[in-house]
Design a protein around this nucleic acid. Sequence first.
DNA 1: AATTGTATCAAACAATTGTTTAATGTCAAC
DNA 2: GTTGACATTAAACAATTGTTTGATACAATT
Lengths: 222, 222
Amino acid sequence: MSRVDVRERILEAAGPVFAEKGFERATVREICQGARVNVAAVNYYFGDKRRLYVEVVKRAHHPAGDPNGLLQWSPGTPPEVKLRDCIRAMLARMLTERAPWQRQLMMREMLHPSFACRELVQLYIRARFGQLLEVLAEILPADVPVHKRHQIAFSVVGQALHYHVASAVVEVLVGPEERATHYGPEELADHIADFTLAALGLAPPVSKAGDREGGVKAGSDG
Amino acid sequence: MSRVDVRERILEAAGPVFAEKGFERATVREICQGARVNVAAVNYYFGDKRRLYVEVVKRAHHPAGDPNGLLQWSPGTPPEVKLRDCIRAMLARMLTERAPWQRQLMMREMLHPSFACRELVQLYIRARFGQLLEVLAEILPADVPVHKRHQIAFSVVGQALHYHVASAVVEVLVGPEERATHYGPEELADHIADFTLAALGLAPPVSKAGDREGGVKAGSDG
DNA sequence: AATTGTATCAAACAATTGTTTAATGTCAAC
DNA sequence: GTTGACATTAAACAATTGTTTGATACAATT
């Protein structure tokens, strides 16, 4: 059993454990048991638990070459379509059960950033956020200030993230049957895309409320 | 030092600790130290740590009489105003630094529900969610199906919740100065309200993009 | 004053954690 | 074959956790 073998097996075993339980609740004993390796091996090869965690996070960001890259579109794709694709991908990323542990780990570090690899996780987020901002730039007028663009982007992200962090609440509020029927990734992505495009003026108001007259353009008495 | 004194002091000391650290990371030693009481007192009065936690959660829901009640409006208040008020209250609830420990605890139980008091926490959420649905009912046409109403409500909640759960990410992405300038509760509430009302057709599209013609009603070549 | 039941306390207990140690194993180089 | 550097192991260590214990203090009752 060569030395790289053991080191590798620890890293592979540690990934899913850290992803599922987080740094604190994961135990080196469980990791070593999963890797069929002595407990002392972690300290021997990585110094301590923290440095093992850092290595695992680094691995999660570079999963063997090309990571789950950004979206690509053929030239001329309308920005509404791009936005819809962004939202669809985002939701798929967040709602997938049995997501690969790399994604779980990144999500965990995003929501509860630990000592490890700030800049690495930041890169992971920034790439996606940047792409969303680019798509929005094709939609919004040029004079929209940067902070307003950010707020709009966060409105998109927030709608999607809600179904990740508050999934338990959703289930409780709407009941299991509606949950099973109407909260699949595709339908939710469509809703969020419709909602967002309507807010941006690129689609009719949601719920076909478009036939209500007077609301939109006329400020009425305001 | 009478018996109710000690029991009370433990409950009072446990509240903030559980709210800040959660059930697992909170230690009975820290709680008892804060209450200036022997460690054994928790088990003497509550049996074990779990039952103490349950008592604390119950207390958090009934903070001595009138809890932070629902919003009230004078008759005739336009639904747009009500919705804006809902969003403002929601954001204030989520963004307040140094929030009372009762709110912190409820928020924690919402996002990471534990063994304790499912139905209690559910009541807490359901009340607010129900009020939001009532306001939406005044806005949406009657034929909008119930699941669509729920999705719309979640779009509102999600936008607000995002600034609670992903506040670290927001800071990283926009930088501390923009964060300090444009992410106060009031401005965010206004943005979310504008965004939502625009999506529902009760306000012009965000960022004054209303002067872009052709986008809305014409499906163009779709 | 003696008794009784409860409250409090310091200390111990048992389990789990990350980490260290000291002995043993492995295997290539000399 | 011996040496020596690295790998691996079982066991112990130290710290922290929730919980239990057995003694003691106290207050009311007999």
